[in-house]
Each structure stands twice: as C-alpha cells, then as structure tokens.
Design a protein around this nucleic acid. Structure first.
Lengths: 162, 162
DNA sequence: CGCTATTGAGTTGTGCACAACTTAATGATG
DNA sequence: CATCATTAAGTTGTGCACAACTCAATAGCG
C-alpha cells in the first residue's frame, strides 16, 4: 500500500536554503495558530471550568453519548496516556462517570453525569463568540477545515509508513 | 483601538446547536493537524536530537543569529516560562551558549555554538521531506499559511481585548 | 539623587502530549 | 483446554504551554 511514488513532484528548483526558511514560516504559522486558538478557548471556557482538551472530550460525549475510552481516543486521536488522567479530572469535577463494561472488562465506559449533560447548555454560547473572534467567514472556516483534514491524513499516513 | 464593531456579520440564522457541531469539527481539525505536524517532525528530527519546539528555536537562531531570550520569545510567541528550561536543555546538549548581556544585565543572549551552527547542515534536508509528506502543493501551503496568519492575529487581538 | 514602576529572566505548579511500560482480560491456536 | 498473542486501560517519565510568582537590573520621575 501507499506506493509513495514521488520524490518531489511539484517542488522544482527551490534550493534547500529557501525551503528551510519557508519551513520556518509554515511550522510557525500552524504552531502559533493552534496555540492562539487554545489561548482564546482557555478564556472562553474558564467560566465552564474546562480546559480546551477537556472541552473536546465533552463535545464528543455530548454528541455521541456514552463511549469507551478507546472510542473517544480514536475520535480525538489521543491515547490512554493522555485520556486517563484527563478523564479522572473530569470525574473529580463531577462531569462524567467511569464504569467498567460488563461485556468486556478491559473496557471502561465514560458517560455524562446530570451535571455534565447540563453543562452543554452553558457551552452552546461559546462557539459563536469564537467564530466571530477568528475574523473568518464561514466559507473560509470550511475551506480551512478541509485543507487541515487532508494535511492531517497525509501526515499520519506518511508517519505510519515508516 | 480595535473598534470590534460586529456582533456576527456573516453568521445568519445558524442555530447554536449546529454551531456547536461545527465548532467540534474546526477545533478538532486544527488541534489534530498541529499534533500530526508535531508527530511527523518528531520522527524527522529524532536524528538531530531535537524536539519540534527546539527546532523552532534553532530556526530562529540559524536565521537571525545571536538573540536575547526576549527576542526569541517574541518571534515564536513563547514566554520565559517555556523558553528558559528549553534553552537550558539546548545548552546542556551543547548547541547554544547563554550569556548575560554586558549592556543590560537583565538580558541573556543566546548564541549558537560551533556544533549548533553545524547542525544546520543536517537540518537542511528536513523541510523537503515534510513538505512532500503534507501532500499539499506549494500554493496550498502558502494559502494555508496566509489564513492561519490572519487567524492567529485576529484571535490574539480578540484575546487581548478582554 | 532617591524612590518607585517596569522589565527580563527564571521558578513553581498544573495540565496536556506522547513514548515506553505494566496489568488484566480477551481471543486465537495447537 | 492450556498457552500465547492481542487488546484496553492505566502508570511513569520527559518535555512543552502557560499562569502566577520571585528577583535583580534598569528606567522614569519627583
């Protein structure tokens, strides 16, 4: 699978020197954007008492209902090393319950508490503020999302193929 | 400054429910892309013995020469809480020197060692591999960079205006 | 000049990301 | 069915991000 036939299909006579400079820019842009996003959410979510990754987990649970840790990890591409302590903190905050599955005792199912479910109402107002703060149009957001999706898929595939 | 005149200029009758779902997608896309990028670089940089943030710092030093911690932080939007330990690790690895400035003894100037400067040669081959792995054209990369730049600027401005 | 505010770097504490590992349960195979 | 491989979750250790803080040096002002 993945023949990876190309050495550099559309990179003509760009010297390494210049690529290093461009790399600087792209790395930096993505890194900075991700952190700016996180920083803005940090403020927006402070009232809810959630961090940004905790918010992502709650979004999954609000949308999809009770899920084993494994499924949440696949959805967010996070492993148990990240999720286990995060979920324990959500449990300590009274937002979720963790229960071993009876069918498969290896699996731990995460489900919302009443408080966790109610928190969704407060969260409904968050995205509009964020979207407004981005200064992007809805079309640009959708376009950005599409490019980022392809980027992630290509990078993880390339990383796995090693 | 920053009149921020608009409540929601181009968000018509989209209900909160749907925005929350869209938010899920966008947050996730950016978060996942950033981590996929970092993951790919982690492998590419393993030979150089650098982490991704360390690579970003080295890029600044390779491009701009000796710089105080403050200047590096402004370039990468990182504060001393992140940079101080990172720079100590680069120093321990023999790649940089940290010297108090004589003109202003509050300032610590970071400069490359011979080994740090030589590492640039090995790093020259990295960006081409990464660019190929993204599966994006050069035009798409430039477009992505432009959107991300505006996104970061808008978000940090909105965050500061609180 | 002397005092106060500001600035640059560093430290501490919390949380996330991830690699490497452990443990327990399940599945597969001879 | 007994053994071995696989799987899910958790643990440990390292490094980054960031808030809140300390400390020393400098700048500004009366």
């Amino acid at each position: 699978m993945t023949p990876a036939p190309n050495a550099s299909p559309d990179l003509p006579a760009v010297p390494d020197e210049e690529l290093l400079r461009l790399d600087h820019q792209v790395c930096f842009s993505l890194h900075a954007a991700s952190r700016a996003f996180g920083g803005f959410y940090r403020q927006a979510l402070k009232d809810l008492g959630l961090t940004y990754p905790q918010y992502l987990v709650m979004l999954v649970l609000w949308e999809e209902g009770p899920r084993p840790v494994k499924a949440i990890g696949e959805r967010l591409r996070l492993d148990s090393g990240t999720l286990s302590p995060l979920l324990k903190r959500l449990e300590a905050a009274g937002l979720v319950r963790r229960e071993r599955s009876r069918e498969d005792e290896r699996s731990v199912v995460i489900e919302l508490t009443g408080e966790g479910a109610r928190l969704r109402e407060s969260a409904l107002s968050v995205p509009r503020g964020v979207l407004a703060a981005t200064g992007l149009s809805v079309e640009e957001v959708l376009g950005l999302q599409e490019v980022l999706g392809r980027l992630t898929a290509a990078l993880t595939e390339a990383a796995d193929a090693r």
